Amino acid sequence: MLFDVHLELGNYIHAQSYLNDIANTSDFDYLIRLAKWEDHKGNLAGAIENMEKAMAIAESSNLRGLKQWSYTNLADFYGHAGDIEKSYNHYLKALQIDSNDAYAKKGIAWILYSYEDKPEEALAILNHVSSYYKAPDYDLLKSEIAAQTNNLDMKSTALDNYIKAMQNDAYGVMYNKYNVILFTEELYNPDLAIKIAEEEIENRPTPKSFDLLAWSHFNKGDINKAKTIIETYVDGKTYEPEVLYHIAEIYKAAGRTDKVKELKRELIASLYELGPNMESKINQL
Protein backbone atom coordinates (compact mmCIF):
# COMPACT_ATOMS: atom_id res chain seq x y z
CA MET A 1 0.00 0.00 0.00
CA LEU A 2 2.95 2.34 0.59
CA PHE A 3 4.00 1.64 -3.00
CA ASP A 4 0.50 2.64 -4.15
CA VAL A 5 0.59 5.88 -2.16
CA HIS A 6 4.06 6.95 -3.28
CA LEU A 7 3.29 6.16 -6.92
CA GLU A 8 0.17 8.36 -6.71
CA LEU A 9 2.12 11.16 -5.03
CA GLY A 10 4.91 11.10 -7.59
CA ASN A 11 7.53 9.86 -5.12
CA TYR A 12 8.91 7.42 -7.64
CA ILE A 13 12.19 6.60 -5.87
CA HIS A 14 10.28 5.64 -2.72
CA ALA A 15 7.72 3.71 -4.78
CA GLN A 16 10.43 1.65 -6.49
CA SER A 17 12.12 1.00 -3.14
CA TYR A 18 8.93 -0.38 -1.63
CA LEU A 19 8.27 -2.45 -4.74
CA ASN A 20 11.72 -4.01 -4.45
CA ASP A 21 11.03 -4.80 -0.80
CA ILE A 22 7.94 -6.89 -1.63
CA ALA A 23 9.34 -8.59 -4.75
CA ASN A 24 7.75 -12.02 -5.16
CA THR A 25 6.82 -13.13 -8.67
CA SER A 26 4.34 -15.70 -7.36
CA ASP A 27 2.36 -13.11 -5.38
CA PHE A 28 -0.73 -11.50 -6.92
CA ASP A 29 -0.37 -8.24 -4.99
CA TYR A 30 3.24 -7.83 -6.13
CA LEU A 31 2.53 -8.65 -9.77
CA ILE A 32 -0.30 -6.15 -10.17
CA ARG A 33 1.93 -3.44 -8.71
CA LEU A 34 4.82 -4.45 -10.92
CA ALA A 35 2.41 -4.13 -13.86
CA LYS A 36 1.47 -0.61 -12.70
CA TRP A 37 5.16 0.27 -12.38
CA GLU A 38 6.00 -0.98 -15.88
CA ASP A 39 3.06 0.98 -17.27
CA HIS A 40 4.30 4.08 -15.46
CA LYS A 41 7.70 3.62 -17.12
CA GLY A 42 6.06 3.31 -20.55
CA ASN A 43 6.74 -0.43 -20.84
CA LEU A 44 3.27 -1.56 -21.87
CA ALA A 45 4.47 -5.04 -22.91
CA GLY A 46 5.94 -5.55 -19.46
CA ALA A 47 2.75 -4.30 -17.83
CA ILE A 48 0.66 -6.79 -19.84
CA GLU A 49 3.04 -9.66 -19.11
CA ASN A 50 2.84 -9.14 -15.35
CA MET A 51 -0.91 -8.55 -15.35
CA GLU A 52 -1.37 -11.80 -17.26
CA LYS A 53 0.64 -13.60 -14.57
CA ALA A 54 -1.52 -12.00 -11.89
CA MET A 55 -4.66 -13.05 -13.76
CA ALA A 56 -3.42 -16.64 -13.90
CA ILE A 57 -2.99 -16.62 -10.11
CA ALA A 58 -6.50 -15.18 -9.65
CA GLU A 59 -7.93 -17.86 -11.93
CA SER A 60 -6.11 -20.70 -10.21
CA SER A 61 -7.31 -19.38 -6.84
CA ASN A 62 -10.82 -19.05 -8.29
CA LEU A 63 -11.48 -15.84 -6.37
CA ARG A 64 -14.29 -14.04 -8.18
CA GLY A 65 -13.35 -10.53 -7.11
CA LEU A 66 -9.70 -10.89 -8.10
CA LYS A 67 -10.61 -12.48 -11.43
CA GLN A 68 -13.07 -9.72 -12.26
CA TRP A 69 -10.56 -7.01 -11.33
CA SER A 70 -7.80 -8.73 -13.33
CA TYR A 71 -9.97 -9.05 -16.42
CA THR A 72 -10.97 -5.37 -16.55
CA ASN A 73 -7.44 -4.10 -15.88
CA LEU A 74 -5.96 -6.44 -18.46
CA ALA A 75 -8.68 -5.37 -20.91
CA ASP A 76 -7.53 -1.78 -20.43
CA PHE A 77 -3.91 -2.71 -21.12
CA TYR A 78 -4.85 -4.68 -24.24
CA GLY A 79 -6.79 -1.68 -25.49
CA HIS A 80 -3.79 0.60 -24.96
CA ALA A 81 -1.71 -1.89 -26.93
CA GLY A 82 -4.20 -1.88 -29.82
CA ASP A 83 -5.34 -5.48 -29.28
CA ILE A 84 -9.02 -4.61 -29.30
CA GLU A 85 -10.34 -8.17 -29.63
CA LYS A 86 -8.53 -9.30 -26.49
CA SER A 87 -9.67 -6.16 -24.72
CA TYR A 88 -13.30 -6.84 -25.63
CA ASN A 89 -13.10 -10.52 -24.64
CA HIS A 90 -11.69 -9.69 -21.20
CA TYR A 91 -14.42 -7.13 -20.53
CA LEU A 92 -16.87 -9.91 -21.41
CA LYS A 93 -15.12 -12.24 -18.95
CA ALA A 94 -15.65 -9.67 -16.21
CA LEU A 95 -19.33 -9.38 -17.15
CA GLN A 96 -19.70 -13.16 -16.95
CA ILE A 97 -18.73 -12.86 -13.29
CA ASP A 98 -20.86 -9.76 -12.63
CA SER A 99 -23.36 -8.74 -15.31
CA ASN A 100 -23.64 -5.29 -13.67
CA ASP A 101 -19.92 -4.47 -13.86
CA ALA A 102 -20.23 -0.81 -14.89
CA TYR A 103 -16.53 -0.43 -15.63
CA ALA A 104 -16.54 -3.34 -18.08
CA LYS A 105 -19.60 -1.94 -19.83
CA LYS A 106 -17.92 1.46 -20.08
CA GLY A 107 -14.92 -0.27 -21.67
CA ILE A 108 -17.14 -1.94 -24.26
CA ALA A 109 -18.86 1.38 -24.92
CA TRP A 110 -15.45 2.90 -25.64
CA ILE A 111 -14.66 0.12 -28.12
CA LEU A 112 -17.94 0.78 -29.92
CA TYR A 113 -17.25 4.51 -29.98
CA SER A 114 -13.54 4.72 -30.70
CA TYR A 115 -12.84 1.54 -32.68
CA GLU A 116 -16.09 0.47 -34.36
CA ASP A 117 -17.45 3.99 -35.02
CA LYS A 118 -20.83 3.16 -33.47
CA PRO A 119 -21.47 6.16 -31.19
CA GLU A 120 -25.20 5.53 -30.85
CA GLU A 121 -24.62 1.99 -29.60
CA ALA A 122 -21.98 3.30 -27.20
CA LEU A 123 -24.43 5.86 -25.83
CA ALA A 124 -27.09 3.19 -25.41
CA ILE A 125 -24.74 1.22 -23.17
CA LEU A 126 -23.76 4.30 -21.15
CA ASN A 127 -27.40 5.29 -20.67
CA HIS A 128 -28.17 1.76 -19.50
CA VAL A 129 -25.29 1.87 -17.00
CA SER A 130 -26.41 5.27 -15.76
CA SER A 131 -29.76 3.77 -14.82
CA TYR A 132 -28.14 1.93 -11.90
CA TYR A 133 -24.63 3.36 -11.49
CA LYS A 134 -23.81 7.03 -10.97
CA ALA A 135 -20.37 8.44 -11.78
CA PRO A 136 -19.74 11.98 -13.12
CA ASP A 137 -17.09 10.87 -15.62
CA TYR A 138 -19.73 8.88 -17.49
CA ASP A 139 -21.44 12.19 -18.26
CA LEU A 140 -18.17 13.53 -19.65
CA LEU A 141 -17.88 10.52 -21.94
CA LYS A 142 -21.47 11.05 -23.08
CA SER A 143 -20.58 14.68 -23.79
CA GLU A 144 -17.56 13.61 -25.86
CA ILE A 145 -19.61 11.17 -27.92
CA ALA A 146 -22.35 13.75 -28.40
CA ALA A 147 -19.77 16.23 -29.68
CA GLN A 148 -18.52 13.69 -32.20
CA THR A 149 -22.05 13.18 -33.51
CA ASN A 150 -22.79 16.94 -33.48
CA ASN A 151 -25.62 16.44 -30.99
CA LEU A 152 -25.20 19.76 -29.19
CA ASP A 153 -28.29 19.35 -27.00
CA MET A 154 -27.08 16.03 -25.66
CA LYS A 155 -23.61 17.45 -25.11
CA SER A 156 -25.02 20.41 -23.17
CA THR A 157 -27.21 18.14 -21.03
CA ALA A 158 -24.31 15.82 -20.23
CA LEU A 159 -22.04 18.71 -19.25
CA ASP A 160 -24.79 20.23 -17.10
CA ASN A 161 -25.21 16.89 -15.32
CA TYR A 162 -21.48 16.74 -14.67
CA ILE A 163 -21.34 20.30 -13.32
CA LYS A 164 -24.30 19.59 -11.01
CA ALA A 165 -22.55 16.47 -9.74
CA MET A 166 -19.44 18.53 -8.94
CA GLN A 167 -21.51 20.56 -6.47
CA ASN A 168 -21.44 17.50 -4.21
CA ASP A 169 -18.58 18.14 -1.77
CA ALA A 170 -18.26 14.40 -1.15
CA TYR A 171 -16.26 14.09 -4.38
CA GLY A 172 -13.53 16.28 -2.88
CA VAL A 173 -10.63 16.67 -5.31
CA MET A 174 -11.34 13.37 -7.06
CA TYR A 175 -12.25 15.04 -10.35
CA ASN A 176 -9.62 17.80 -10.41
CA LYS A 177 -8.09 16.50 -13.64
CA TYR A 178 -11.44 16.42 -15.41
CA ASN A 179 -12.29 19.87 -14.11
CA VAL A 180 -9.07 21.39 -15.45
CA ILE A 181 -9.80 19.97 -18.90
CA LEU A 182 -13.41 21.20 -18.66
CA PHE A 183 -12.39 24.75 -17.77
CA THR A 184 -9.69 24.94 -20.43
CA GLU A 185 -11.45 23.27 -23.36
CA GLU A 186 -15.19 23.72 -22.81
CA LEU A 187 -16.03 26.49 -20.32
CA TYR A 188 -12.97 28.63 -21.14
CA ASN A 189 -12.00 29.73 -17.65
CA PRO A 190 -8.21 29.21 -17.63
CA ASP A 191 -7.72 31.16 -14.39
CA LEU A 192 -9.94 28.72 -12.51
CA ALA A 193 -8.20 25.84 -14.29
CA ILE A 194 -4.82 27.17 -13.10
CA LYS A 195 -6.12 27.36 -9.53
CA ILE A 196 -7.35 23.76 -9.65
CA ALA A 197 -4.11 22.55 -11.26
CA GLU A 198 -2.06 24.24 -8.54
CA GLU A 199 -4.20 22.49 -5.94
CA GLU A 200 -3.57 19.19 -7.68
CA ILE A 201 0.18 19.82 -7.67
CA GLU A 202 -0.01 20.62 -3.95
CA ASN A 203 -1.73 17.28 -3.37
CA ARG A 204 0.43 15.18 -5.68
CA PRO A 205 3.23 16.79 -7.69
CA THR A 206 3.31 14.24 -10.50
CA PRO A 207 4.18 14.93 -14.16
CA LYS A 208 0.47 14.59 -14.97
CA SER A 209 -0.40 17.30 -12.43
CA PHE A 210 2.21 19.66 -13.85
CA ASP A 211 0.82 18.92 -17.32
CA LEU A 212 -2.55 20.22 -16.16
CA LEU A 213 -0.90 23.45 -15.02
CA ALA A 214 1.02 23.82 -18.29
CA TRP A 215 -2.14 23.16 -20.33
CA SER A 216 -4.03 25.76 -18.31
CA HIS A 217 -1.36 28.42 -18.91
CA PHE A 218 -1.22 27.46 -22.60
CA ASN A 219 -4.97 27.97 -22.96
CA LYS A 220 -4.62 31.33 -21.24
CA GLY A 221 -2.11 32.28 -23.93
CA ASP A 222 1.08 32.11 -21.84
CA ILE A 223 3.05 29.83 -24.15
CA ASN A 224 6.48 30.48 -22.62
CA LYS A 225 5.29 29.61 -19.12
CA ALA A 226 3.58 26.47 -20.40
CA LYS A 227 6.74 25.46 -22.27
CA THR A 228 8.93 25.98 -19.20
CA ILE A 229 6.65 23.80 -17.07
CA ILE A 230 6.60 21.08 -19.72
CA GLU A 231 10.38 21.06 -20.14
CA THR A 232 11.03 21.05 -16.39
CA TYR A 233 8.40 18.68 -15.02
CA VAL A 234 6.65 16.72 -17.78
CA ASP A 235 8.54 15.90 -20.99
CA GLY A 236 10.08 12.42 -20.80
CA LYS A 237 8.50 11.69 -17.42
CA THR A 238 5.13 10.27 -18.46
CA TYR A 239 3.80 8.41 -21.50
CA GLU A 240 0.08 9.14 -21.21
CA PRO A 241 -1.26 9.93 -24.73
CA GLU A 242 -3.38 12.86 -23.50
CA VAL A 243 -0.32 14.41 -21.86
CA LEU A 244 1.78 13.80 -24.98
CA TYR A 245 -0.85 15.66 -27.01
CA HIS A 246 -0.64 18.64 -24.68
CA ILE A 247 3.15 18.59 -24.94
CA ALA A 248 2.93 18.51 -28.74
CA GLU A 249 0.53 21.47 -28.90
CA ILE A 250 2.69 23.54 -26.55
CA TYR A 251 5.88 22.72 -28.45
CA LYS A 252 4.15 23.52 -31.74
CA ALA A 253 3.15 26.95 -30.45
CA ALA A 254 6.70 27.48 -29.19
CA GLY A 255 8.21 26.57 -32.58
CA ARG A 256 9.77 23.26 -31.48
CA THR A 257 8.84 21.43 -34.70
CA ASP A 258 11.53 18.81 -34.10
CA LYS A 259 9.76 17.70 -30.93
CA VAL A 260 6.31 17.82 -32.52
CA LYS A 261 7.23 15.47 -35.36
CA GLU A 262 8.38 12.77 -32.95
CA LEU A 263 5.34 13.14 -30.71
CA LYS A 264 2.92 13.10 -33.64
CA ARG A 265 3.99 9.56 -34.57
CA GLU A 266 3.27 8.34 -31.06
CA LEU A 267 -0.08 10.11 -30.98
CA ILE A 268 -1.23 8.61 -34.27
CA ALA A 269 -0.46 5.19 -32.79
CA SER A 270 -2.59 6.13 -29.75
CA LEU A 271 -5.69 7.33 -31.63
CA TYR A 272 -7.87 4.52 -30.27
CA GLU A 273 -7.04 5.50 -26.72
CA LEU A 274 -7.52 9.21 -27.39
CA GLY A 275 -10.81 8.87 -29.26
CA PRO A 276 -12.18 9.97 -32.66
CA ASN A 277 -12.49 13.64 -31.67
CA MET A 278 -8.70 13.87 -31.47
CA GLU A 279 -7.88 12.62 -34.97
CA SER A 280 -8.20 15.97 -36.75
CA LYS A 281 -6.30 17.77 -33.96
CA ILE A 282 -3.40 15.33 -34.18
CA ASN A 283 -3.31 15.49 -37.98
CA GLN A 284 -2.98 19.28 -37.74
CA LEU A 285 0.07 19.16 -35.49
Results as ranks from 00 to 15, higher is better:
Tyr132Phe: 14
Leu95Val: 06
Ser209Thr: 02
Arg64Cys: 11
Glu144Thr: 12
Ile247His: 01
Tyr12Phe: 09
Leu141Cys: 05
Ser70Arg: 01
Lys220Phe: 08
Leu267Lys: 01
Phe210Ala: 03
Thr228Glu: 15
Thr184Glu: 04
Ala47Asp: 06
Ala54Arg: 00
Leu126Gly: 01
Asp98Asn: 10
Glu273Leu: 10
Glu242Met: 14
Asn168Cys: 08
Asp27Leu: 06
Asp139Val: 01
Asn100Val: 14
Gly82Arg: 02
Leu274Met: 11
Ala124Leu: 04
Lys36Met: 15
Gly82Ala: 11
Ile230Gln: 01
Ser156Thr: 09
Asn283Ala: 14
Ile163Gln: 06
Lys225Gln: 09
Leu2Phe: 00
Leu141Ser: 04
Tyr138Trp: 15
Val234Leu: 05
Asp39Lys: 04
Met51Gln: 12
Ser280Tyr: 13
Ala135Gln: 11
Asp169Val: 14
Asp117Ile: 11
Arg256Cys: 11
Gly236Asn: 11
Glu266Gln: 15
Gly79Leu: 03
His217Arg: 13
Ser17Ala: 13
Thr25Asp: 10
Ser280Val: 09
Ser131Trp: 05
Gln68Cys: 09
Leu285Asn: 07
Glu249Val: 15
Leu92Met: 14
His246Ser: 14
Ala58Tyr: 00
Gly46Thr: 08
Glu231Phe: 00
Asp211Gly: 11
Ile13Val: 11
Met174Lys: 08
Ser114Lys: 04
Lys227Ile: 04
Asn89Lys: 15
Gly107Ile: 00
Ile145Gln: 02
Asp160Gln: 09
Asp235Ile: 06
Asn283Gly: 11
Tyr113Cys: 05
Ala197Trp: 02
Gln148Ala: 13
His40Phe: 10
Pro241Lys: 02
Lys86Asn: 09
Glu121Tyr: 07
Glu120His: 13
Leu285Ser: 08
Thr257Phe: 14
Ser99Cys: 07
Met55Cys: 14
Tyr30Met: 11
Lys237Trp: 02
Ala47Lys: 01
Tyr175Arg: 07
His217Val: 06
His90Pro: 02
Lys252Ala: 11
Asp222Asn: 09
Asp27Ala: 10
Leu141Lys: 03
Asp83Thr: 09
Ile181Gly: 04
His80Gln: 15
Lys142Val: 14
Thr184Val: 10
Glu144Ile: 06
Ile111Asn: 01
Ser87Ile: 01
Gly221Glu: 07
His217Phe: 12
Pro136Glu: 09
Ser26Asn: 12
Ala165Leu: 07
Ala122Gln: 05
Met55Gly: 03
Ala269Gly: 06
Ala56Cys: 10
Glu200Thr: 12
Leu34His: 03
Ile268Pro: 07
Tyr78Ile: 02
Ala135Arg: 13
Leu152Phe: 13
Glu279Asn: 10
Ile230Asn: 01
Glu266Trp: 04
Asp4Ala: 02
Glu59Arg: 10
Glu8Trp: 00
Phe218Thr: 03
Asn189Leu: 12
Thr72Ile: 12
Asp139Met: 10
